[in-house]
Amino acid sequence: MTAEKERVPVLKGEGIRKYYQTGGSIGRGKHFVKAVDGVDISICEGEIYGLVGETGCGKSTLGRTLMGLTEATDGKIRILGKDIGGMKKSEITGLRRNIQMVFQDPYTSLDPRQKIGDILMEALEIHKIGTKEERMEAALKIMGTVGLRPEHFYRYPHEFSGGQRQRIGLARALILSPKIIICDEPVSALDVSIQAQIINLLQELREKQNISFLFIAHDMSVVRHISDRIGVMYLGHMMEEAPTDELFARTVHPYSKALLSAVPNPNPHQKKERIVLKGDLPSPLNPPPGCVFHTRCPYATEECSIRRPDMKEIAPGHKVACLKV
């Protein structure tokens, strides 16, 4: 599937940086949390791109920055090939229709005082699409697509279970017929049986409507199942990026190896070697110099603490940021 996916990227980020300022009060210097520090990412049409990493690695910030929920400190974002830097606000809004987002927590991401129908139609109203009747028709149609029943139209979010709410979140994202949906941990708040329902639904949407997904998650087995390509982040940097089968067959970066080896296996007969990393994630306020992973890397040498590795392509589509490769 990967070879034919050499198509136009629907969403592209080049050298994305997002710094948050902290401190800066009297008597203290300014500090920056480098949440995302120079990441390139591109997602092609109809592709599911899995973004993984541990808490605090910047995967959600990257997603929110690409979505435009926070402004990037530096870097270029292209939507459907158009650079949004220097564009007028109205132009960006028009283009943004093509990117939608589904959030992790289905309990806090829906307005508790709006009925499901209103939540869905609001997006169309903002973009001034259709008459009231047409909007209602569109909302009902999209509810059918995600497996909600028409009578749910007049209900409030609290009347739904977690899985159903995530379907509403997905319907809200789909109603503007976007080209790409950014899903930030869309299934991690759900039980396994419900999780499987949502994952199957996402795959179905991709097949039927050719929508691309940026799938941000920390669960490796879910990401492996759903993604065509996977990017592994650590402390604001992309460590490794490869087509899914390639990444699992030939994991190169020491961090990716450790991350994969830590995933528990639901087969009690397969015991595997586990690579246990020393210590905790360093603070993004004060990231280590050189390769950000060198403080925990079992193979680190002196050079790693001085020079920052660039992403190198070692096989078609397989890029690694490591000096030892």
Partner: peptide, 8 residues
């Protein structure tokens, strides 16, 4: 917890 910490 994250998987790496979960394993520990």
């Amino acid at each position: 917890l994250d998987v790496t910490i979960q394993a520990q």
